[in-house]
Amino acid sequence: MVEWLSTYNDIMGMYNAHIITTIAGAFFVTFAVCICWGKMVETFGPIGGMMCAAIIVGTFWVMNHKLPGFGINPEGLTAADGKGMQFGLIAQTGPWVDMGWAIGMGLWVLSLIESKPKDRLPNIVESTPRLLFVILGGIIGGAIVGLSGFTGAELFGWGNSPVFGQ
């Protein structure tokens, strides 16, 4: 078991232990959002939603995405075998995978199951363009911010990171 967990899985690009932690990390944050966020908004109004941003997303970010370090490039730490060290539950195998994917998927599945059986197919059809436009908007915003990489500004040495490029 220990041997299997600490084996590097070439197909997945992560240690086998990370298969478990990635699913679990995505599950934890999504479950907390599904259960708590609506109730907090019901109880406190918009302030409740803004509190949730801090106490759910902020706290679960520490668990899922933390990269220990202070003013350095912490994800640049390499293990003895040259592979990148991962500290969060959600493994990063390439371009950044955020727990936002899990939250979006979880709320989508939740509302799919909660809608009446006869409404499910029309609801999927209705939600697909909205889903694609949200993803398109995210790509536009993220790509525009990413353009700052073309200005030569390189403070913390991202370029040496095993996770973020070689």
Binding site: P95, V97, I140, G141, G142, G146
Partner: peptide, 8 residues
């Protein structure tokens, strides 16, 4: 999520 992938 999509912004994270596009950004990276």
């Amino acid at each position: 999520g999509s912004a994270g992938v596009a950004w990276a």
